[in-house]
Design a protein around this nucleic acid. Structure first.
Length: 262
DNA sequence: ATGGTCGAAAATCGA
């Protein structure tokens, strides 16, 4: 059964419910994973999703911040959440499809502005969250699994507009990249986006603080789709929908897509 | 070295 998965940091699902609706209508992924819903689960605009055939929703939320949701046209089962680094935040939820594939939806902490855990508690929390992910996947030995989300790290030189200028900027520092690589190794995860698009600049986020984000094009690839080694060769057709960043009242993130023939 | 823009929620914090 082939299926398509998408991930999108929506930056308030209530404010942008109409954008979610447009994406579902135009692209019709089987599963859409959202981050930064910024509301309790009882305030998710479920009617809109249901009306489009997304009858299955697994989510975790909190008032004002964070929040993750998995919308699906295919039946899914809630298989729980993890609270890495015991932050008490809604940053992870997992669901299982009937074909046995588990989908993990993550919103990794952004980490603040200063890349030093002595000077910035949030940076330490980000690293600790990633270490928690590493240890958990090391113990779990995931199989037939897909991991998506806003991981808030652009690991490769061609995942950022300027490797040199971003080396000390949170999201591209060597210590974060090492932590993310440890997570990837611990679960035998394969970066499906880069499996499909192995070279060239690739971004999924552009700051709001640019006069013209498209012309400046100072982007970063913060949003990822991974799969465990055993199903990685089923992944294909990866793409990042850059035009979505140019929709009215957009999120600062573009959605990332991949398909799997399983 | 700094400021630039958003969203939620209350007049700031987080990104």
């Amino acid at each position: 059964m082939p299926f398509t998965v998408a991930t999108w940091n929506i930056n308030s699902v209530r404010l942008r419910a109409s954008l979610v609706e447009r994406l579902l209508r135009e692209e019709a992924p089987d599963v859409l994973c959202l981050q930064e819903c910024k509301c309790p689960i009882e305030k998710l605009p479920l009617e809109i999703f249901h009306a489009l055939g997304y009858l299955h929703v697994v989510a975790r939320g909190q008032k004002g911040y964070n929040g993750v949701a998995i919308l699906s046209r295919l039946p899914i089962q809630d298989v729980g959440e993890q609270d890495f680094a015991t932050l008490g935040h809604a940053r992870h939820v997992a669901a299982r499809l009937e074909n046995g594939v588990t989908i993990h939806n993550f919103y990794v902490p952004a980490g603040g502005d200063i890349p030093d855990r002595e000077l910035n508690v949030k940076f330490g929390q980000k690293l600790d969250y990633l270490t928690g992910m590493r240890d958990w996947f090391h113990a779990e030995r995931p199989e037939k699994a897909i991991l998506v989300g806003d991981l808030n790290i652009a690991p490769r030189e061609d995942d950022v507009w300027s490797h040199k200028q971003l080396l000390k900027i949170v999201s591209h520092t060597p210590v974060e990249v090492e932590h993310l690589a440890d997570v990837q190794d611990s679960g035998n995860w394969v970066d499906i986006t880069r499996q499909d698009i192995p070279s060239g600049q690739l971004y999924s986020w552009w700051s709001y603080r640019a006069a013209d984000w498209d012309a400046a094009d100072k982007g970063r690839r913060l949003d990822h789709i991974w799969a465990t080694q055993d199903i990685a060769n089923a992944g294909h057709s990866s793409r990042i929908l850059r035009p979505v960043r140019g929709w009215d009242q957009p999120s600062d993130h573009a959605p990332v897509f991949a398909s799997f023939d399983l």
